[in-house]
Design a protein around this nucleic acid. Sequence first.
DNA 1: AAAGCTGTAACAATCTTTGTTTCAACTTTC
DNA 2: GAAAGTTGAAACAAAGATTGTTACAGCTTT
Lengths: 146, 146
Amino acid sequence: MQIASKFTVAVHIITCIDVFGEQMRVTSDFLSGSTGVNAVIIRNVLAQLRSAGIVNTRQGSGGAHLAKALNEITLYDVYMAVECVDNDEGLFHFHENPNAKCPVGRNIHKVMDGRLTAVQAAMENELKSVTLAEIVEDTKKIISEE
Amino acid sequence: MQIASKFTVAVHIITCIDVFGEQMRVTSDFLSGSTGVNAVIIRNVLAQLRSAGIVNTRQGSGGAHLAKALNEITLYDVYMAVECVDNDEGLFHFHENPNAKCPVGRNIHKVMDGRLTAVQAAMENELKSVTLAEIVEDTKKIISEE
DNA sequence: AAAGCTGTAACAATCTTTGTTTCAACTTTC
DNA sequence: GAAAGTTGAAACAAAGATTGTTACAGCTTT
């Protein structure tokens, strides 16, 4: 089981906006071409990024723009924006009907929950440690060396 | 998107084997009752735990037993045993067809891969830091205080 | 007014997880 | 050795999530 590709698509989108945004209109069609992902999916992801205050889009005129400086956007922000993991449910799917009549069944949740939360937090902290500025910088560097 | 519940089921199973194993046969039917999960699923998980050298099972006689000391089993071992995440694919599902004709499309993988691996490693290290001995100890403590 | 783009809904296709049915093979007990 | 209880495993169904597709209303610019 994997985290939905909307996350990597979102990072790809933001990178494209910064790399190409000054010289052209970055439309959902263009992004669809660069990512290989359907334009409607792109618009959905853009809508989620917009809700999170990461990008701006407008009907009619077309073209997405960044709403924040790249060094103020972390991978965690993007991850949360596209909601690959439901915040209520958490990263781990717990089996839903442990038997309350069994001593283990009625207590396993209590024992596990804190630890599963810690595991999820470890992952999220690592995501918080990377900014999109780094991602875009690396990308531009590689492009310039090609 | 979530990590399959087979993982929490597996932890539940191991806990039951230790808690109840001395006084009764811990069969797939019993585990099905305690977890609320279908007995065939339980047998599948047991088969994966057996392949990983964590438990022993036998046809006919019935009843699962631990093949290792609890302090030698970490949550990571269980997680890997049940293969909730494909080892080849990784935790993050990358969009599969970025456009090689686009400078961003043909380099985004290079830029992201190392960082995604680091995020996954952070999660896995946290899983490695918890042993089943702790889980079972906590569970027994709670049961004794009920 | 025309062209191009976004926003969004509805539906289909695909994949994964989980459940169900079924039956062969094995062990213990009578 | 027969019966009962159990595991191992295959095949298929059910349910849910992701991704793709189609369609169209609404906005902006020219």
